[in-house]
Amino acid sequence: MAPAATATSVASAVNLQPGPTYTVTRTHGPYDYNAYAISEGKTLFNQFNCTGCHSNGGGGMGPPLMDDKWIYGSDPASVFATIMEGRPNGMPSWRGRIPDYQVWRLVAYVRSMSGQASKDASSGRDDHMFTKESEQRLDELKPRQASTPQLR
């Protein structure tokens, strides 16, 4: 429950539009080295139906999460804000519905999908048939800035 204190201050600083001036210091999330929290995050990712839009990371209605492209920032605070406040073009806000500590667990898992969390702590298996290599086997992808998807 410790991260809750930092959560509010982070979550209110939302930058809705990505841009070159938006710089963040790269920090580790509270659960990046916590295997239990990451596997809980993985369970919650399925149970809260994140898979409905993001699939198992490959993306669908929502953007893929297992690649190196980040529209709204790859650092834990930005991912937290994305989940808490939502983002344009479909990402809903989960503030008030999912408690802070569970959001942080989701953050750790989402980051582990592209190798951003510690390899030692990332999941080594899936509860269902393997559709891709487990997070533990992934090489860390260097995050790069991607633009908001354009509606055509």
Partner: peptide
């Protein structure tokens, strides 16, 4: 309905 209850 407005809290997290309906998620589960």
């Amino acid at each position: 309905m407005s809290k997290g209850c309906p998620l589960c």
